[in-house]
Design a protein around this nucleic acid. Structure first.
Lengths: 173, 173
DNA sequence: TTGCTCCTCACGTCACGTGAGGTGGC
DNA sequence: TTGCTCCTCACGTCACGTGAGGTGGC
């Protein structure tokens, strides 16, 4: 049996979080002492570990509750839906980054995170020994086999939409 | 002069948002009518357009207020900091995705978004005519010229940290 | 008595959305 | 009078964090 403080230490989680989970009924302590202290059992700890694991995926607590309460069959479905949400968020962030780049006056001042760019890839491919013809072929093979992924990849390199369209157009000719 | 409803239509923004911006003092109408209706001027519209533009980058309203009130010198700095926040969020999302993949029991059920994977890249490079030796060289050139970007790229392909470490280790030998 | 942990409200966060109840101009 | 837009509260959202004020066990 753990008091709330002991459980905080065990699970490396804050007291406020535990109080909140109790309040919304996500994780209630299995017992209380005579003095009304919360008593958490080993199973409670195990359930908390589960909750924390799902929480690390950014899943909202309502979904986590569904997973814990339902049969295992639903778990993958809920996870899959959540993955789609994450992908959606990624796309949103990429668009936001592009808008920032357009808004920036002085490009020099921007902190250059290790971000993938067109120039980096071209340089690496040249150094590996590829020539322009092979580079063009690379694009075409990419476009033919995985058109959607090709689009995603070019966006990721920070290319504007018009240039991407032009490249893909050239490939399909 | 626009009423609040007309401004909503012009800027494609909700009434509630405009009420909120007024409340927090971010965008107050320049005048009120005798009946206490909000009157927005052309400059108000222009300012709103600015706000919307920055909002599309996901920037919080407090930062936007700083940009609008301060000299232009600070704008790029604030944008740069915000860009770093976006990059941070991206990394977080990538980690969340990897955790989901580890949690999934039935991989088949997962919706396969157009996501970049190791296999896709390898296939495209093979089709372009590269052999295993050239692939190894590609890794090494990438590692030598842009080590941080190499790391980011491999993470993006969804590789687990241990495999990434192994690949980079091999290159530096 | 002093410290420590525990308890229960209750309010703050961020950027709005959504009513409720009432008013002004055609 | 009927519709329309406008107004001002005030509460709900999500997952907690942070006090305030009080209690129990050593």
């Amino acid at each position: 049996m753990y008091t709330i403080g002991q459980l905080c230490d065990k699970a490396a989680i804050s007291r406020g979080t535990l109080l909140y989970y109790d309040q919304i009924g996500l994780l209630k302590p299995s017992t209380r002492t005579a003095a009304n202290y919360r008593c958490y059992s080993e199973q409670d700890l195990e359930k908390l570990r589960q909750i924390c694991l799902y929480r690390e995926t950014g899943m909202p607590l309502t979904k986590i509750r569904q997973i814990l309460e339902s049969a295992e069959d639903d778990t993958d479905l809920i996870l899959g839906k959540h993955l789609q949400n994450l992908n959606q968020s990624m796309r949103k962030l990429q668009i936001q980054r592009q808008i920032i780049e357009r808004l920036t006056v002085d490009k020099e001042i921007m902190p250059s995170e290790p971000g993938l760019t067109k120039d980096i890839f071209i340089e690496v491919l040249y150094k590996t020994g590829l020539n322009d013809i092979q580079l063009a072929k690379l694009h075409c093979e990419f476009e033919r086999s995985f058109p959607e992924e090709h689009q995603v990849f070019l966006e990721l390199l920070g290319m504007p939409g018009t240039e991407i369209a032009r490249i893909r157009e050239n490939c399909s000719k």
